[in-house]
């Protein structure tokens, strides 16, 4: 972890029509930091994480990603997306492409990576997520857990500076969750990539993250070191939330 900021929110506000989805968000995530974002359903976690790669626009305040101001007209959002990967709850693999092509497509057309190098990197990544034998399969021939591991490999192939995860295991059958979390743990341990993970997996949070952010009703209520958060949640909302998820 370094002292340089990767993602900075300054008084960010986001509305859906009249609905106030993000309220005066202030956050600073350093390069290489592993952060877990938790909170009850509907608290704005997805909204927050999706503003970082511009899938949602902010209405007020300032959002800096890798030094670029997302609200500025001068910022090319595609440049930021090149450097910030995202893994979705429902995978969003390209249904018309094989596993291997899912991984190779963006590096080929966005990064212009030479074909043999592209192929080599893609196969290494598939191997890393344990799916080298599924290179030729189409997404609809994979299980949910396999799809998510391909989706992670696809994000990694862009060699991003930051990787966002929005509930990557929430749509999976329980027996598939472990494999995906293992892949994520490996990434967290091996790389200096910034990671921001929305999850309900508290054990993963405890093992992997440097820091936990707790949100409720569109606000950041807590932002503390992981150990401190789990030992000593400051707000009533966080205490309630923890007792609920830990009794599951």
């Amino acid at each position: 972890m370094s002292d340089i900021s990767m993602i900075t929110f300054n008084n960010v506000e986001k509305y859906y029509g009249d609905f106030h989805a993000l309220k005066k968000i202030n956050l600073d995530i350093k390069k290489g930091e592993k952060v877990v974002l938790i909170g009850p359903s509907g608290s704005g976690k997805s909204t927050l994480i999706r503003t970082i790669n511009g899938l949602e626009e902010i209405n007020d305040g300032q959002l800096l990603v890798d030094g670029y101001d997302l609200a500025s007209d001068k910022t090319d959002i595609n440049k930021i997306r090149k450097n910030v990967g995202m893994v979705f709850q429902h995978f969003n693999l390209y249904d018309n492409k094989s596993t291997l092509e899912n991984i190779m497509l963006a590096p080929r057309i966005v990064l212009k990576r030479p074909e043999n190098e592209n192929h080599k990197i893609a196969m290494e990544l598939l191997d890393k997520v344990g799916l080298a034998d599924k290179a030729a399969n189409m997404p609809n021939e994979l299980s949910g857990g396999q799809k998510q591991r391909v989706a992670i490999a696809r994000s990694l192939a862009m060699q991003p500076k930051a990787l966002l995860f929005d509930e990557p295991t929430s749509a999976l059958d329980p027996e598939m969750i472990g494999d995906v979390l293992d892949v994520m743990k490996d990434i967290a341990q091996d790389s200096d990539m910034t990671m921001l993970v929305v999850t309900h997996e508290m054990n993963f949070a405890k093992q992997v993250s440097d820091r936990v952010i707790f949100m409720a009703d569109g606000e950041v209520l807590e932002d503390s070191k992981t150990e401190e958060f789990f030992k000593n949640p400051k707000t009533k909302r966080a205490q309630q939330f923890l007792s609920q998820v830990e009794h599951h």
Partner: peptide, 23 residues
Amino acid sequence: VDIGQFEGARANGMNNIQTMIFV
């Protein structure tokens, strides 16, 4: 086409036109 296909491609670094043509 499912909105997730657009978002997957955009999050993967592709621009509007690339997303349309390839995905």
